[in-house]
Amino acid sequence: MRVLIVGGTGLISTAIVQQLLERGDRVTLYNRGVTARRFEGDVEVIAGDRWKYAEFEREMRQRTFDAVIDMVAFAPENADSLLRAFSGRAGHLVVCSTVCVYGGPLTRSPATDDEPHRPVTKYGQNKSRIESTLLAANGQSGLKTTILRPSFTTGEGHTALGALYFDDSMADRARRGLPLVVHDDGATPWAIAHVSDVARGFVNALGNDKAYGQAYHLTSDEHTTWGGVFAALQEAAGGKSPVVSIPTDWLYEVAPRRMVGVKFIYQYGSIFDNGKAARDLGFRTTVPLVETFRRQIAWSERAGTYRRADEEPLQDVLLDAFTRGQRPAPGQVHDVNPWGNEPES
């Protein structure tokens, strides 16, 4: 199968590429060439910026593909460009969306694929509009479309639980027995999937006629709570840390960029029914959460991204201020958000 991936070097993309190559597909990537690749094997790379729509669409008009996976569609205009680029030139268009299209709290748990869309973040709102555009286009000009919705997905390529507070020292704190901050009481239901399992869902969707015009969850079958997540991290790291509960609202008040995910995503239960994907795509998750964290810790040590607790004072500053009933002093919190460096409004 001739497969184009728009993106192709991110966390989930890397696992998808590796699995496609292992089964013998011909893979082409379209990206800016900024992120180093972490997969083994030969792929064709087209250098370009998909946000430069005229250039992107002109390049794609010269080619045909059996399937296209777009991993980096973040704006409604991206969806319009995809349709102009691939209508009549690709058999199947698969787009990575997100469970953030639902917002929170969910109306039921586990939530099914027809959960109402009530997104509260710009990210979720844009993804919801992208979904609507592409699903409405299914069957037009010979193009079939599918939407896939991962939830919290991690693995080699990211540090263990680093995305929670943008704090890459989480594993080291657990290893050394240092206190760990959990938002609220840690009882919120949660699930984290290993990237290889989620990638397999994408691969199994390609050219699958059951998937045409459909949307699916690709989330973990292992359901726990945030308290369970922290317990799994400690087991993987080989330490035992006290877990200290701090209210979401206080965390967001003192560090709105660091805590944007906690405020708008992680404070809400995130358990999803994968039954539809299991039926149509043969989807199931196989890597337990403890093993996921073990692999991440080992990868980060090899890759040089493992960060010691004394290099990241965030949680110590938060714990000290909260215990004293005060806000951190000005400048104590390095309040940064790699997702865009702005709190949601």
Rank of each mutant, 00 (worst) to 15 (best):
P150Q: 00
F166P: 08
K122H: 10
I147N: 10
E253L: 11
S220Y: 08
T305V: 11
G88H: 08
T323P: 06
N274Q: 05
D316K: 13
M170D: 12
T35Y: 09
A67D: 11
V68M: 01
V95A: 01
G91A: 00
H194T: 04
I46D: 12
G228V: 07
Q315I: 11
T145E: 00
P119C: 05
N138L: 06
G104S: 06
R279Y: 08
W51Q: 15
E342W: 10
L251M: 04
V34L: 15
T145V: 00
R324P: 08
T153V: 14
T28V: 03
N31Y: 02
L164C: 12
D184L: 11
R173P: 05
T219Y: 01
D221P: 03
L93K: 09
T292H: 08
R89Q: 07
A79E: 09
F293H: 06
Y216E: 08
L178G: 12
V99P: 03
R129K: 10
F322E: 06
K144Q: 07
S97V: 00
T9L: 03
T121D: 02
D185S: 02
R149Q: 04
Y30M: 00
A278L: 03
G331R: 00
R175A: 13
L21N: 02
V198G: 11
F230A: 07
A278M: 03
L106A: 02
W250V: 00
T285C: 05
F202I: 02
S132K: 14
T286A: 15
V17Q: 09
E301Q: 15
N78P: 09
A54T: 15
E342K: 14
T145F: 00
A137D: 03
K144G: 00
K127I: 03
N138H: 10
T35D: 13
D316Q: 12
E301P: 11
R307K: 11
N78F: 07
F272T: 01
Q332Y: 04
L83I: 05
E344H: 12
L134T: 06
E115F: 02
Q315M: 13
